[in-house]
Design a protein around this nucleic acid. Structure first.
Length: 505
RNA sequence: GAUUCCGUAGCUCAGCUGGUAGAGCAAUACACUUUUAAUGUAUGGGUCUUGGGUUCGAAUCCCAACGGGAUCACCA
């Protein structure tokens, strides 16, 4: 496997040999004791008190400004960046100046990991810096990093090519602090949810990713094959039916951050694998779930931003609970002028024609209503809004509405014109559930390739009895996009799916 | 999947209507002990994504492939 090396890469490899000749191991095995992170030093240093006389920290060299017998360098560690002041005589107190003249000046590059010890001080210009008394190479970097510079908020030579940023996320993370920040927020968001659920007595669980019957959602699955059993398996499209089995089993409140896989198109809001938080709570209904959800989202916004107001593009979204609740038929009436609540399939097809929405023979009543809502209404709901009471045809796992015929107790949460959560009062009547599955089977025969499969084991579970339950799925990637002001899902996934690179590097 | 734009040095980009490449940063060498997009001087660095075609001659024009972005369609 021959590797084409650039001039700079050859130079760095040559430096390895030079370092070894000087007795410096470019990849030493010993631990390096880190006493402080850069950010902690910047936060706590007090020049009057000189309270940090002895620190040691480690990280990557991000820039070097050489001035003969002294130099300034920027060290980047997990907490941020801090300036180093490296004087020749400070790191080489004796006669031998090799460490400074050769190792540091010539053989250490931008991107190398070093460990330094010294005291903290403020330079003439007032920048908190480390006065380095000892410097050690911890790991050599053989590829030149993109050099991003910044002055007065202006970024120069930014590393911006999306393809390179996504394929080599490690470089993106090293060089673009704002990218790093987005992912820190993502983790914080997940932790906030976990803490919130745990505080309400929920139990986090794991359910199968490899499934016989890909259930719980309408989507095309990835298919695979188990050799020993010689049976097909599918990567899960949702975990809903498994979590409900756990409710049957006697757990009252279960949740899972479910990595789901759907074999469909990709664009800036869809990745083939994505994360949905699902949770199910026994003895609750969808009204309770709306209350709980708006409180959860309000809490997330406050944790991440210190306020319920979140900027998304040119809009400000306000997650202050409670959110508006709008029945889907009301929404359609408001934005199209048509009252579709009493219409049959033919009437709906007619409305679609008038609204210039394409239809085909495979679409049932529910699907047609969904199309109208998706085309004409969805985009209008910028502020968090619960759309409630969907037609039964669209919701094969949802309990029929307690008072409105033909509807189910379901809501979707729309924010910034997109659905980010979907919840119901769960259907726990096994007879009705069987009938709904059979409806789905008919739709599948009509050509709807997203209709649900019949899951007989799930029906069996329901027959043993499931308590009244409310459940929800919240799209975590989309929620992170909203909370971090990102227009593309690729910006909130460390490693978004890409076509494989053809020629290896 | 459709439409459209893009692919030149490690990074960010120039390269006009075709005459086989250029800048800044990075790299190399030298100078400089409190600088901060450090500076000064000098030097090196490119299968111009790939493959065809047109032409005396292609980074540039044409065709195709590969990869990516944006918009649209479907799904979360």
């Amino acid at each position: 496997m021959s590797q084409h090396l650039s001039e700079q890469e050859i130079v760095r490899r040559d430096k390895l040999t030079e370092l070894e000749a000087l007795g410096v191991n470019p990849y030493p095995p010993e631990l390096f004791h880190v006493s402080h992170y850069s950010q902690a030093i910047l936060d706590t240093f007090d020049a009057e008190q000189n309270n940090l006389p002895d620190v040691s920290l480690a990280g990557r060299i991000m820039s070097v400004r050489l001035m003969g017998k002294a130099a300034f360098a920027v060290l980047q560690d997990a907490g941020g960046r801090i300036q180093l002041y490296i004087g020749r005589d400070a790191i080489c107190p004796g006669e031998d100046k090799t460490l400074y003249d050769e190792v540091f000046k010539r053989l250490v590059d931008i991107g190398d990991f070093v460990g330094v010890k010294g005291y903290v001080f403020k330079t003439k210009t007032g920048e908190t810096s480390i006065h380095v008394s000892s410097l050690q190479l911890l790991a050599k970097s053989l590829k030149p990093l993109p050099i991003v510079k910044e002055k007065d908020g202006e970024i120069y030579d930014a590393f911006t090519d999306p393809e390179q940023r996504y394929r080599q996320r490690y470089v993106d993370l090293v060089v673009n602090p704002h990218v790093r920040n987005t992912f820190i927020k993502r983790t914080k968001l997940v932790k906030t949810i976990r803490d919130f659920l745990d505080a309400h007595g929920a139990m986090e669980v794991d359910t199968p990713v490899l499934q016989n019957i890909p259930g719980g959602a309408a989507a095309r699955p990835f298919a695979t094959h188990h050799n020993a059993l010689d049976v097909p398996f599918y990567l899960r499209i949702a975990n809903e039916l498994y979590l409900k089995r756990l409710i049957v089993g006697g757990f009252d409140f279960v949740y899972e951050f479910s990595r789901n896989f759907r074999n469909e198109g990709m664009d800036r809001t869809h990745n083939p694998e994505f994360t949905v938080l699902e949770f199910y709570v026994a003895y609750k209904d969808y009204f309770w779930m709306m209350d709980f959800t708006e409180n959860l989202l309000e809490k997330i916004a406050i944790e991440l931003h210190g306020t319920t107001e979140v900027t998304m593009g040119d809009k400000v979204l306000n997650f202050k609970a409670p959110f508006k609740r709008v029945p889907i038929y009301d929404a359609i009436k408001e934005f199209t002028g048509f009252d579709v609540s009493e219409m049959d399939e033919a009437g709906l097809v007619d409305v679609c024609k008038k609204l210039h929405i394409e239809t085909d023979a495979s679409m049932g009543k529910g699907k047609l209503i969904d199309e109208i809502f998706g085309a004409k209404c969805e985009g209008n709901f910028t502020q968090p809004t619960f759309i409630i009471d969907y037609p039964v045809e669209l919701s094969p796992l949802t309990k029929k509405h307690r008072s409105k015929a033909g509807l189910v107790e379901r809501f979707e949460l729309m924010v910034n014109g997109k659905e980010i959560a979907n919840a119901y009062t769960e259907l726990n009547d096994p007879i009705d559930q069987r009938a709904r599955f059979e409806e789905q089977a008919k739709l599948m025969e009509r050509g709807d390739d997203e209709a649900m499969f019949i899951d007989h084991d799930f029906l069996r579970a329901l027959e043993y009895g499931m308590p009244p339950t409310s459940g929800i799925g919240i799209g975590i990637d989309r929620l992170v996009m909203l909370m971090t002001n990102q227009a593309s899902i690729q910006e909130v996934l460390f490693f978004p799916q890409m076509r494989p690179e053809t020629e290896g590097e």
